[in-house]
Amino acid sequence: MLGSASPTPLPDMAEVAVAEGESVARGQAGSPAALAVEGIHLRFGGLSVLNDVSLTLERGETVGLIGPNGAGKSSLLNVMSGFYRPDAGTVLIDGRTAGGLAPHRIAHAGVVRTFQNLGLFQGMSVLDNVLAGRTLHIRAGWPHYLLRLPAARKDERDNRERAMEILAGLGLDVHADRRVSTLPYGAQKRVELARALAMEPATLLLDEPLAGMNAGEKAEMVEAIRAVNRRDGTTIVLIEHDVGIVMGLSDRLVVLDRGRKIADGSPTDVAAMPEVMTAYLGTEPGAGGERGA
């Protein structure tokens, strides 16, 4: 209800120009990439969390972001969504620099995230949670709403229909009027996805969308994510620990370890790379003295 525990600390949001990237990341077709980060450095005090990380997302691809605990996966997602401001580096959305943009502006630009520990509005109904995601799509001005003019009524009807459609697609329409906190955890995770989808994002950043789910819930969620990618062509980044699932779902895998990108390629190639094995298993032939993950 009030000041709920924040999943991540929010740094000062004053807009600060981040070093302009000279090169605009371009996809294979020549159109700008959906989202690109270049040379991201992020430090918390003396701790280097991200060290020169660059990553380009082509439109419509699904990228799995993996790595041991503390590798910087969530931090990278927080940089991409504007929740963290990097110390150096550029964030580009559709080829335009988005460095220093506040999170709500990044959401307006079509890059929408979900949270590792659920970011739902707990006191509200499932439908209201999803409708909150439609606030960007309110077309009629508030005077129309106060006076119940036809424009407002149509707007409201359209948004409600769209929200119900999305809920139905995730098998949640029967719970539309329930308080979201009364749903099982797996269903709450789906509501969060539904709210993100209600914004009609071009790029979805999913921070452990399968965490805490049982096998049945996981299978449903995987299907839902795949469907979004296929149907709407949404670019997807997901952080996931279950390597089997993430390999099946992703077109490309990116591996982070101790704040550095150590691998980036097709799931089969990446899985075969010795550095990745090392990062996960902590055995580093010939360099036994290094600290583990």
Partner: peptide, 10 residues
Amino acid sequence: ADPLAALSIG
């Protein structure tokens, strides 16, 4: 209800 989540949806 959740200021950060509100930010994330714009």
